[in-house]
Design a protein around this nucleic acid. Structure first.
Length: 345
DNA sequence: AAGGCGGGGTG
DNA sequence: CACCCAGCCTT
């Protein structure tokens, strides 16, 4: 049996029972593909369930408020996916009368839909021979064919896409695409691939040369930036202050407490004398204390955020603000959600 | 071509 | 700790 035959056969024997594999509804396939970008199936699955329950059709998603969509997305990360998801739902609902385009080119024009996702939808929903090349496919092909071209170089991207195009089974493109991805996720795993029980063992270049650990080749590591966040929990024991992040930075459009970002750790005097703090206090009497003696480190893949939460209790009443009981209704970063939980608002 | 964008799992 | 995940967008 050839490479594709083994892959598809393995898939039929080993594929997981996942909800988006029971449908060819482009709305649900699109939703699942967006959620699974840079995200493991096990992490995305509960979100898929929540979204399909809350928004059974693309019209339901289109009608929702962005804030509600972000709240449902909370914890899944890469929040531009949620914002683009909402935008594209409105595009499909109102400009396409609810019907997704059925070809690669038109699909790729949708916000948040790139080469991978357009190929996935076109093959799974519309039986088009458009090959997907995700992290799993890069790994399987690099190992099996012994290709050392860096997968994130311009040359590598072109090379692997062309190879995937040669390999795709035109009579079952959707199944083949899903098969090679599932094979990469479960059999040809990044660490400790299960070569011992692999039907491609005999013909796999990486296995023959013992290079499973060296393939695929990837250029440069991400270097991590350090940031120092000081959150001000201003409260009169009835209300607090929440703000929406609007800058082009992490967590765009999510909510958080007023923030003083500094270039290094700072002490209480720095906070109490800061312009941002003084404007919020507005001359009122207050008491301030540090919630966490230990610096809280929130790790993102590209930055480490060292955080202090300052509890500022006002003696007077806040004129405007968010009722404390409502804080949990806002979409917030996990860092904030964890604090709210620990603090017991 | 390079950098930014989350959060969690694995070894 | 490093690496990676059903990638995409902006500059």
């Amino acid at each position: 049996m050839d490479f594709q035959g083994v892959i598809v056969h393995w898939y039929k024997e080993n594929k997981r029972d996942l909800p988006w594999r029971k449908t060819k509804d482009p709305y649900r396939i699109w939703l699942s593909e967006i959620m699974l970008q840079q995200t493991r199936v096990e992490q995305g699955l509960p979100y898929y369930q929540k979204f399909t329950a809350a928004y059974p059709t693309v019209f339901d998603l289109a009608k929702a408020q962005e804030e509600e969509v972000l709240k449902l997305w909370q914890g899944l990360g890469y929040y531009s996916r949620a914002r683009n998801l909402h935008t594209t739902a409105q595009e499909i609902a109102y400009n396409y009368k609810g019907t997704f385009p059925n070809g690669y080119d038109a699909l790729k024009k949708l916000k948040g839909v790139g080469d991978y996702t357009a190929s996935a939808i076109a093959s799974i929903c519309f039986n088009r021979p458009t090959p997907v090349v995700d992290g799993n496919v890069y790994r399987v092909l690099a190992r099996y064919f012994g290709i050392a071209i860096p997968i994130n170089s311009t040359e590598g991207i072109k090379y692997f896409k062309a190879l995937a195009k040669e390999l795709i089974l035109k009579d079952q493109p959707g199944d083949y695409n899903q098969a090679i991805m599932e094979f990469g996720a479960r059999q040809c795993k990044p660490q400790s691939p299960n070569c011992k029980l692999c039907n491609l063992q005999n013909s796999c270049v990486a296995f023959a040369e013992g290079k499973m650990g060296e393939l695929p080749v990837k250029l440069k590591k991400t270097k991590v930036k350090k940031r120092y966040f000081n959150y001000l929990i201003i409260t009169d024991n009835e209300k607090t202050i929440l703000q929406q992040r609007k800058n082009k930075d992490i967590w765009q459009n999510l909510y958080e407490f007023p923030l003083i970002e500094t270039s290094k750790e700072v002490e209480i005097e720095h906070i109490a004398g800061h312009d941002t703090f003084l404007k919020l206090i507005h001359g009122n009497a207050y008491n301030i204390r540090l919630f966490n003696e230990e610096l809280k480190v929130h790790k993102l893949s590209h930055q480490h955020i060292y955080t202090r939460f300052w509890i500022v209790t006002l003696h007077g009443k806040l004129k405007s603000g968010t009722v404390i009981e409502k804080v949990k209704d806002y979409p917030v970063p996990v860092l904030i959600a964890n604090f709210v939980e620990d603090f017991g608002f």
